[in-house]
Write a protein that binds this DNA or RNA. Structure first.
Lengths: 204, 204, 204, 204
DNA sequence: GATGAATGAGAATTCATTCAT
DNA sequence: AATGAATGAATTCTCATTCAT
């Protein structure tokens, strides 16, 4: 029914916004980021609009779907995360590069409490998110993974998608634990990747 | 304020319910299980009551807190899960026993989509759940873990609590993946436990 | 529709209750008194039944209407209040007797927070109460009033009913004030009765 | 938690409402006044919204707290009541001014059946009311009272607050009595104030 | 384009009262 | 007679979303 698409996350024809409109979009993104951190990604729309000093209507105009807003809020960081891969690859052994990149990914997710939940909330408002994340991070992760596997440092039977989701899940908030917990568990998972490789090598 | 306690989850004085009441409780548990599977553990109370062919009041009488219902629905299975440990310990090497038990735990969680979410929903209605799960499964997992660590098969620096939560997180539904995905990721995590052990032994 | 009448407040044919039934009625009265004091006269029925160690059904059997219970709870005290009049009349000047009796009435109402409210709650469950109170206390108050008026100590233009209601109203709980407040205000009202008399006498 | 404030009772920055919003607020006030008169100040929100031809959400938007609505409904009249004092003081002897002003106050309360109840309902939804009433009428009443006392026309040992509450209580609806009853009882109370003065003077 | 008022469908929860056991 | 389970209407309050201004 609703056919309007988010102005900001729309790749095709990124029609220039009027200056004031752009200012609103910026306020909204900043406000959303703050509110997401406080109350999670499914915080009431009004709360975000209020903090942005903008009417709810304006929020809905620019971000018809909740996931549009989440996407837009984290786009830059997701991009940065993806873009960090080449440098890591260049500077480290493949296995270490993978490890460090996953740590970076962990850092991103774990400090955005609520983001990870949105990736599998079931709420149709977030349906578009997993797809977006995969599109952006999947190839990056895949190439790191393949390089490390090719180098015999990690097992080869885990897909990038599986890994990205697993890490995302491990970054979900747990009782009174903080980021450190997520880091530890992700490290454990990565060790699992290594263990597989070691076993198969030792078996060779 | 809230002083009534769930009739079914009450350990002390499990006073016999009237036959008709017991029938209702059973219907409710069955209905809840079905609805939890469909709409998650935070489905509207009415939906469950309706499916059980019972008034909402009846639901609230037997399960004043949402978590009472969740607990009751899974109690038997949680118990069975905990109770499976001794046999596994007796029949297998400590490391294998731990592995097999975690697989069983995984099976339980992964087939109860939505249960795992409740463990970290943040909703105060579920506050009691993590505590209950830990009480019941924590010691079981801890002894398996210690035995395996003592035997040098897994690393010793991961607590039972951390592990249980991590597995629960890994069992969260992921896009269109099913139980097989959860199994794989948990296996990976367990390999991580082993990897650590190998390293420290080789370091000795 | 409901034609059963309260067993206890029924004047006609006070059919003997079975011993156990009488015990229940007694428990209920005691419990009701306690609960009325704590939560007001419109406290949930279950709360009273629970305290009495009795099922709600039993409460409803003996006191089909809420007002039946209130009546029964205070009957003895209302009676005592009414019965105190003759002695006061005998021992004091009519004006003083009236004054002292109204103080007693005040004491009764003011220490039964919530009772006074029930006298004009509008809730049909309490409809029968004002009538009962008037029946029992009206004549008593009237004769004291008339005697004092005949003696020229108070004005003659205030009816017993008006006075009883006015005092009841003044006994309603006020913010953080206690019984002392009620006493003071009732005393003020009584002075008003005297003032009128003085004026008319001085005018004679 | 609750941060929104009633638009209408907000003194600071009485930002102009949109025309349609103002119309709704007016409908709501009118409806509330009617319903308060019929069913008391604690009538269901829906009843008021329906009568106003407005959704409940609209009611909650403008009057987040029940007491906001009550305040708004009576604000103008409370103000008028307070504002009437100076003229009465100017035109009459202090004692008469006090008398007339209390009559006016009585008139206000007695014709708003249910309002007085709200002043001591105990329901937290009305917590703000007594405070508001006292703030507005307390000083007015106090200065009338002091002037009359200074003039020896009434006793000096009754506080404005006590008096205002006492009159409010006397204005509570009584069985089938109407406003006339309230007037009579308040007059009696005021005579009580005078009686005391006479006594103390005679004692001088 | 922006605004924010309005809507109204839920969702939770409570309790008086009935009636099967 | 007693019990207490069941009912479900009633009420409060929230929020996503639309649309008049």
């Amino acid at each position: 029914m609703q056919e309007r698409r988010s102005v900001v996350t729309e790749n095709t024809a990124p029609r220039r916004l009027r200056a004031d409109a752009q200012r609103n979009v910026d306020s909204l993104l900043e406000a959303a980021k703050a509110v997401f951190g406080t109350s999670g990604v499914d915080a009431p729309a009004k709360q975000i609009a209020d903090l942005a000093g903008v009417g709810v209507g304006t929020l809905y105009r620019h971000f018809p779907q909740r996931s549009d807003l989440v996407k837009a809020v984290f786009q830059r960081e997701v991009d940065a995360c993806a873009d960090a891969a080449p440098a890591l690859s260049a500077a480290h052994e493949p296995g270490v590069a993978l490890d460090k990149w996953l740590q970076r990914y962990t850092e991103f997710l774990a400090t955005k409490r609520g983001l990870a939940s949105a990736l599998h909330s079931g709420d149709p408002a977030f349906d578009a998110l997993p797809c977006y994340f995969m599109q952006r991070l999947g190839p990056t992760c895949a190439s790191l993974l393949e390089a490390a596997a090719a180098n015999g440092e990690v097992r080869a039977d885990v897909s990038a998608k599986d890994l990205l989701y697993a890490v995302a899940n491990l970054c979900l908030p747990v009782e009174d634990e903080g980021v450190a917990y997520s880091r530890r568990m992700v490290a454990l998972l990565v060790d699992g990747l290594r263990y597989g490789a070691a076993v198969s090598r030792s078996g060779a």
